[in-house]
């Protein structure tokens, strides 16, 4: 069932973000075209748009994720969603994983198109990036892998915390019929501050506190959806 939920999350979000991804790729290609045609001014304009699209991807990924959570749970669609034979935690998890996937995709596409731009301007970069197989030691490999894994985990945790705090805030907002938007924003600030205090008091490193915060926000969301649901 989780797989099915995940499938429809992907379908829904991909449709909304596809235009942005397409624009990103399009502008990267246009940059290459204009560069090869030796039209530096137009190319710089294209690069400017490229940066704007990158910003748009970041913002809209967040907007789409939030809108998907809200409309699938709390609009009329909620009547369908919450009568499906699935557990509440499965509903939340499928959304979380899909959201993380798109967060990563956005990031990946951003890096890829920017790297593509750099390579276009200076093809020597490619030759410069030679993987020094001869000089690398097993210790180096371990070091590299650990750092890379830590980076991935860190980004994952950062994104997950952000997504779950949004989910929890929107859910808390649902508790109030009349002032749901105000309550959602208030909850967001409240949870954010709580997160800061929590991390400070706990004193542990980011990898642990973020995981715990994710757990707390997940539990809040799950409780509200299982016990305090009140659709119009």
């Amino acid at each position: 069932m989780l797989i099915h939920l995940f499938k429809y999350e992907i379908k829904s979000i991909f449709r909304q973000l596809l235009p942005f991804y397409a624009a990103l790729i399009l502008f990267a290609l246009l940059e290459k075209v204009f560069y090869m045609l030796q039209m530096p001014t137009i190319m710089s304009f294209t690069a400017l748009f490229h940066i704007l699209i990158i910003a748009a991807v970041m913002v809209f990924t967040l907007v789409v994720i939030t809108r998907r959570f809200y409309s699938n749970f709390f609009s009329n669609e909620g009547y369908l969603t919450f009568t499906l034979p699935v557990k509440t935690w499965e509903l939340i998890t499928s959304k979380l994983i899909a959201a993380l996937l798109f967060a990563f995709t956005g990031m990946l596409l951003t890096f890829a198109t920017v790297f593509f731009l750099f390579v276009t301007i200076n093809p020597d970069i490619l030759s410069g990036i030679q993987f020094p197989f001869s000089t690398i030691t097993p210790d180096d490999m371990l070091n590299l892998t650990t750092h890379f894994a830590a980076f991935i985990y860190g980004t994952l945790m950062y994104d997950a915390t952000a997504i779950l705090i949004i989910y929890a805030s929107v859910s808390i907002g649902h508790l109030s019929r009349e002032h749901s938007i105000f309550c959602a924003f208030a909850a967001f600030f409240g949870l954010f501050i709580f997160g800061q205090i929590f991390s400070f008091v706990l004193g542990a490193n980011y990898y642990v506190t973020s995981l715990l915060l994710c757990g707390i926000f997940f539990i809040i969301t799950n409780y509200i959806l299982s016990h305090r649901l009140n659709l119009a």
Binding site: N76, E77, Y79, L80, P85
Partner: peptide, 20 residues
């Protein structure tokens, strides 16, 4: 719970399939 949702078919008053 999940077990009852498998055997209950629900038609709400408002349409819930207003999507893409």
């Amino acid at each position: 719970g999940t077990e009852t949702k498998k055997i209950v078919s629900y038609l709400p008053e408002h349409t819930y399939i207003n999507n893409w």
